[in-house]
Amino acid sequence: MSKELLFISQHWNIEFNHAAGETASVFFRAIKERKEILGRRCPACKRVLLPPRSFCERCFVDTLEWVKVGKEGTIEAFTIVYEQFRGLPKPPYAIAYVLLDGASTAMVNFLKKVDLNNLQEALERIKIGARVKVVFKRKRRGRITDFWYELLHT
């Protein structure tokens, strides 16, 4: 009897049409229609949650009030990706969590328009505490990728 082991190749290809829900729909429409970033304020702890949520996970209450936050902020965490992962963008790219002025929590997005080819040079510019601005895409679809961050030059 042959001891050759056989293989069964398979591929998953599944489609979804996810509902953004009421809260995220308001957030994405504000980005798409007015280039505004909206957070939700918790009536108990007063934090402005970004991305906006309909509840505060700390106080267990619903958030009700929309708050327009600033289009500039501070980098709270970042990474620079140099590895190609299948199905993910072509490297290098930078991702940053930014605390926008007036928000209480940091929101993640790509950090663009900075040369990443030399890591050490990139690290001279991309730092926790560095100031960034929100830049909107010209053609917006109501998605998180309608905007990104860019370093503010001082």
Binding site: F16, H18, A20, G21, A24, P51, E76, A77, F78, T79, V81, E83, F85, L88, P89, Y93, I95, Y97, M107, V108, N109, F110, I128, R143, I144, T145
Partner: peptide, 22 residues
């Protein structure tokens, strides 16, 4: 989540990079 974070290319490696850098 498909709404806010997935499209920003986060995975199990870079999610830990954010902790490391802080």
């Amino acid at each position: 989540d498909p709404v806010y974070e997935r499209e920003v290319a986060i995975n199990a490696i870079n999610m830990c990079s954010f902790q490391a850098i802080r």
